[in-house]
Design a protein around this nucleic acid. Sequence first.
RNA 1: GGCGCCGUACCCAAGUGGUAAGGGAGAGGUCUGCAAAACCUUUAUGCAGCGGUUCGAAUCCGCUCGGCGCCUCCA
Length: 486
Amino acid sequence: MTIQIYNTLTRQKEEFVPLNQGHVGMYVCGPTVYGNSHIGHAKSYVSFDVMVRYLRYCGYKVLYIQNITDVGHLTDDADEGEDKLVKQARIDRVHPMQIAELMTRSYFEDMDALNVLRPDISPRASGHIIEQIEIIRKLVKNGFAYETGGSVYFDVTKFPSYGKLSGRTLDESLEGTRVGTRSEKRHSADFALWKKAEGGHIMRWPSPWGEGFPGWHIECSAMSMKYLGESFDIHGGGMDNQFPHHECEIAQSEAATGKPFVKYWIHNNLVTVNGRKMSKSLGNFITLKDAFKKFDPVVVRFLILQSHYRSTLDLSDDSLLGAKIGLEKLFNTIRNVRETIKKTDQDQHAGQPAIDFSAYKNRFLEAMSDDFNTPQAVAVIFDLAREANQLLHAESMPGMETLLALNALFSELGGMILGIVTNDLSSTARDENDEAKLIDILVQTRQKAKSEKAWWAADFIRTELEAAGIRLEDKKDGTIWRKIDS
RNA sequence: GGCGCCGUACCCAAGUGGUAAGGGAGAGGUCUGCAAAACCUUUAUGCAGCGGUUCGAAUCCGCUCGGCGCCUCCA
């Protein structure tokens, strides 16, 4: 089965044919580690995670690179703002690398919770300054870049196909330019490859143009080509990075090597909250750590997979709740299958394998091969679950072979590929007040025991709760409880 | 202003020429000591609206209305 991928570069679905048979080089723009990751990161990296999983499932040897941006990503205009990490470090009064380290750990923590497989390599931008400088030198030498005042800019007028990814022309770029802005750039669309470090700037490295730091776009070119070669198969990222980030990557990479940079560009769509784009500047973003307080990470992952990666995902408590209940239902079925296997006699082969497993599998793989259509793939899983439930509740018990095959298929499609079904399907319930609810139930039980003068039961509950650090106090109009130091 | 995307049931969401997937919610039923779980039936003659192409349109074309994104940082 061939895989179709929507290529942003050509604006159509194309058959996936890797540059080297059997091997896939894949690079995805990683996070800028100056703050906690949010739901948008989850959508992006879950989507690409499923792609990697599926390509591997199909037998490809995938080398998956995802960078960590810990320097050079400016807060404002691509060439004028402050380095994001430096800014955050200034606010927190710590070294920028402390922010980077802390937030990198936090990021992986969240991704692990979402069952996102770690990239094969997570290169840090600050660890590849030399490689970045090398590319910049080459660009200057070949006339694609120019140095001015200790900074180096890419000269977009020297790269005629600038704009081919985002469908822009240089004329358009000019129109949107503020008039009268003083800039050392020759053309408003020129972008920084290297920035001179002003006095007091902490993140700085020596370079042929004096002390400074790299521009944002150059790191991805340097690190992707270092590990995947000058031309590679897939480059992914959020739609918001299509321009200018990816456009600049193409320009500087292809200008430096003279070779095509990337064969397939994949862009995932964004998360909206109440119909509005979730963004850092709008301040309406939901961090994953907050989301996980209310919903199990697997619920978040499941919700993401229920929509297509190229569609926007509008997030709300309702949609998360719907996903939670639906997933719970699916897990129930799989748990039942597994329980039944345990209870079933090994030798019981009675009953014909009533399920056409290969039909389900084929439908699933067809969906996945059509530009990673996870919503359809999920639908197939639910169809399978319905048939499984019918079987489990039928008059005659299904045979062992059927049960094992069923469990295997759930694990293969829902687990290995979608990353939803794991060996341990604990409840997806996630409520901070679970403890309080349980205590309330115990209190009510005790109240009932008291009303029936079952004093031994009432006293038992009170004594045991006290031992567990919960003190009950009977008031005139009811019982209250509070936590005590036990 | 330039470029682009979207509008499918009460909600979420697939489907891009062949007669509307899936999930949630709702209604009725089966099973059941009561629940829960599960199963069955049901819920859009219609896919923002209008017109066109076609044997056939949610899907293609045009216009209108509504929402959003990029063009500054963001996954």
